[in-house]
Simulated assay, not measured.
Amino acid sequence: MTELRYDSADPYAVRVIFNAHTDMTIEWSFGRDLLSCGRRQLSGLGDVQVWPSEILGSGMVFISLRAGEDMDVVAASAAVIDSFLERTLEVVPLGEEERFLDIESPAGRLLDDI
């Protein structure tokens, strides 16, 4: 089982959690913009790449995840990815991510320790 998650406390990132609700889970975090751009064209450098495709008339999104020598590629329905991205934009609209960052809190904690 795989889940896509979004948290407004980390507004630039999305998370993919594999084997969710089991004892063994693996979580990858990467930019929401990477997932969005990957809906239209090959996007990403390095450990995570996302690209669109069509298989038997159905829109798909492929996500390549690399850790060292290991690489996995997962596929998801483009409609599912689109719906997920739309819901994230309802929570934190594009361009307003900075408003949701709690930058003052870490700085305040640092100053309290001095």
Rank of each mutant, 00 (worst) to 15 (best):
G44H: 07
S83I: 01
Q49T: 11
G108Y: 02
G59W: 09
V61F: 01
G57V: 02
C37A: 15
E90Q: 15
V74E: 06
D7I: 00
D102L: 03
I81M: 02
F18V: 09
E104P: 09
D102M: 04
V74I: 14
I26C: 10
V48D: 06
L4H: 01
P93V: 00
A20N: 03
H21N: 12
G31W: 07
S29H: 10
M71R: 15
V14M: 00
I103W: 13
V16L: 14
A9M: 10
G46P: 07
S53Y: 10
T2Y: 14
L4Q: 01
I114Q: 13
S58F: 12
I17H: 02
L89T: 14
R99S: 13
D82S: 10
N19C: 07
G57D: 07
E69S: 14
L42N: 12
L110V: 07
V74T: 07
A13M: 08
E104Q: 11
V14N: 03
G108P: 08
L65Y: 01
V14C: 03
G31F: 07
L111A: 13
S64Y: 03
I63G: 05
S29P: 03
E97Y: 03
I81Q: 07
W51V: 03
L4G: 00
Q49V: 07
S105Y: 11
R87T: 07
E69V: 13
C37Y: 14
L89V: 08
R5F: 02
G57L: 01
T88A: 00
E69M: 09
S36D: 15
D23C: 03
R66I: 05
E69Q: 13
I103M: 12
R15D: 06
N19H: 06
S77Q: 13
I17M: 04
T25H: 10
M1P: 09
D102F: 05
G108T: 06
S64K: 13
R66T: 14
D7T: 04
F18C: 12
F30M: 01
P93K: 01
P93D: 00
C37I: 11
E104I: 05
V92R: 02
V73E: 12
S36V: 07
D82I: 01
P106I: 00
G46N: 08
P93C: 03
E98M: 10
E104C: 09
V14E: 02
L110S: 07
E27K: 09
I17S: 09
F30I: 05
T88S: 00
M60Q: 13
D112I: 05
Y6C: 04
M60Y: 06
A9H: 07
